[in-house]
């Protein structure tokens, strides 16, 4: 009686994919729909509003947001480098790049925290205006995604990396899946940045 689930690591010949790859892409498809719903809400509320105010009216800082954009783009590059290092069997390089990726995520959240507290100190809360409601909800949900991706990457950097010894190929697949999620999170920010700060 064969118990193991097939194609967890090796691709199924006729589909050319392993289970994890399909699973993560389906998950990302649903994430696209989630943020699609949020952006649709933004559009409908903005178009229907009689008193729309752009981010600059509430002192949203473009330099800080641009710094955050740079931070996330950098983290995507290091994420791919971490994966590429595993493909070349260079584990110490993997550790380095993955560490930078996690730190970039952390840096992003620190800047986000500075932005949030500065808004609060000026008396700007989600309930103050419909723009701020959207700003806090969209960036807040994105922030939860950043924390989730950062947490899983930290796990893959630390205790999860033991798998490199026992099942290197499966571990590489995991890093790739995590990288796909991380790229999605970064892409969402690349849309959020102009929508909330510039337009």
């Amino acid at each position: 009686m064969s118990m193991a689930i097939p194609y967890t690591v090796e691709p199924r010949p006729d589909t050319g994919l392993n289970n994890v790859k399909i699973g993560i892409w389906l998950f990302l498809a649903s994430e696209v729909m989630l943020f699609g719903g949020l952006f649709a809400g933004y559009i409908i509320l903005r178009v229907g509003s009689t008193d729309w105010q752009p981010g600059s009216a509430f002192g949203l800082s473009v330099p800080l947001a641009f710094t955050n954009t740079l931070v996330l783009i950098t983290s995507s590059v290091t994420m791919v480098m971490a994966w590429a290092s595993l493909i070349r069997k260079d584990f110490s390089k993997y550790r380095l790049y993955m560490g930078i990726t996690v730190l970039c995520g952390l840096g992003f959240m620190v800047i986000k925290y500075i932005e949030y507290t500065s808004k609060f100190s000026h008396g700007y809360y989600p309930s103050t205006h419909i723009f701020l409601a959207l700003y806090f909800t969209l960036t807040g949900l994105h922030g939860i995604h950043v924390i989730a991706g950062m947490g899983y990457n930290a796990y893959l950097w630390g205790p999860g990396a033991k798998m490199w010894e026992t099942a290197p190929e499966q571990f590489t697949n995991r890093v790739e899946a995590s990288g796909l999620f991380w790229h999605f999170v970064d892409l969402v920010w690349i849309f959020l940045f102009p929508v909330l700060y510039l337009l």
């Binding site: 892409w25 783009i73 995507s76 791919v80 994966w83 790739e176 990288g179 796909l180 790229h183 970064d186 892409l187 690349i190």
Partner: peptide, 14 residues
């Protein structure tokens, strides 16, 4: 799609 393909797409968007 592999992470490679996604990364290229990402760089284009960035």
């Amino acid at each position: 799609m592999s992470l490679k393909a996604v990364h290229i797409f990402f760089i284009v968007v960035a």
